[in-house]
Design a protein around this nucleic acid. Structure first.
Length: 115
DNA sequence: CTAATGACAAACT
DNA sequence: CAGTTTGCCATTA
């Protein structure tokens, strides 16, 4: 992996991983929520980037992390595009048209739940 | 160092 | 209200 994980950056990545692991089953969160929780709400894209490295670690449920719209924008980055949806449905979530239904209901806010 | 890209988000038209 | 555009921040070329 060309991912030059320098010491400083590693912390940010690790944070994202930790939060992702803490996401309760049957729930999901957004990149912005994690970014905000990490104190870098403006770096929502970086969270996604972290997930890109996260997909290497099977312990990280990256499928529970989607954009604020609940759309599975990163499904293409999985082993198979359908795996993300499959996993989410297995969790009890309702995924349709690459978008999580009732996302607002299953949304998991680390800043509140994890606080 | 500048330019381009991206698993996003908010603002604007 | 929906589609389009700009902004942010970090990484890569």
């Amino acid at each position: 992996m060309v991912v030059s994980l320098n010491d400083k950056n590693k912390d940010f990545f690790q944070m994202v991983f930790e939060v992702a692991k803490l996401i309760p089953k049957g729930r999901a969160t957004s990149y912005g929520a994690i970014a905000t929780y990490l104190g870098a709400k403006r770096s929502s894209r970086m969270v996604g980037w972290a997930m890109n490295s996260a997909h290497l670690d099977k312990n990280i449920p990256a499928h529970r992390v989607v954009n604020r719209n609940g759309m599975l924008t990163g499904k293409m980055h999985f082993a198979t595009p359908s795996e993300m949806q499959e996993l989410l449905e297995k969790e009890g979530l309702i995924v349709e048209n690459d978008t999580i239904q009732n996302f607002k209901t299953i949304f998991w806010n680390p800043s509140e739940e994890l606080l």
